[in-house]
């Protein structure tokens, strides 16, 4: 199946999906209108269109450039730089870039026999970000959703065991959020 065939099939079967503005390069990217329709859409994709392999669950925080306070040490690529000097690699905001207080979730589904992949995107507000869990459909969602919950702070409602997975239990906040600030803990000097 080619991407164009998949697109026309999606337009017929799941008309509420629209082409996302920013396409993930080389893969067809569709945007979901709201979180309520996620489960029925993914179930239809799995059962009617054969997308039975959940390849990736990811999320992007669109708040703006990352803060240096989120790092334990100043991220400084020049080892011999004087102490207290401003790190040179802290990114600045790109002018006219649509930063917004939203978290964009990204799912990548694959149809193994047809050798085709589909990216689904959904934007949710940063405050109390929550989306339905896909654990009931894909076991592969279990740990991937826990990772996103741990690092990005998105609650997956309906997940059987939504606990931290990678960061230690004393770590406060969600490190991949752009406004994350590192709180000194017992392992910092």
């Amino acid at each position: 199946m080619t991407q164009d065939e998949l697109y026309s099939k999606l337009a017929a079967e799941l008309p509420h999906l629209e082409k996302a503005q920013t396409q993930v390069k080389d893969y067809l990217t569709m945007r979901l209108p709201s979180a309520d329709r996620l489960l029925e859409t993914v179930r239809a994709l799995k059962e009617r269109l054969g997308f039975d392999y959940l390849e990736m669950v990811s999320a992007t925080d669109w708040l703006g450039p990352v803060k240096p306070e989120g790092y334990i040490r100043n991220p400084n690529p020049i080892v011999f730089m004087a102490e207290g000097a401003t790190p040179q690699s802290i990114p600045t905001a790109t002018p006219n870039f649509p930063y917004r207080p939203m978290i964009e979730l990204v799912w990548m589904l694959a149809n193994i026999p047809e050798k085709i992949r589909l990216v689904l995107k959904l934007e949710v507000p940063r405050e109390d970000a929550a989306v339905p869990s896909l654990c009931g459909l894909f076991k592969a969602a279990d740990w991937q959703e826990r990772e996103i919950y741990d690092l990005m702070g998105v609650a997956f409602t309906g997940h059987p065991n939504l606990t931290k997975i990678l960061t230690p239990e004393f770590l406060q906040g969600h490190p991949l959020r752009k406004d994350y600030v590192h709180v000194k803990d017992r392992f910092d000097e």
Partner: peptide
Amino acid sequence: GIFLVSDGQASPYRMHVKAPSFM
């Protein structure tokens, strides 16, 4: 897999690693 997002700066805006061992 690697999912890479750029906002036009010199660093990636977001890098997500889909690690096979994790799965």
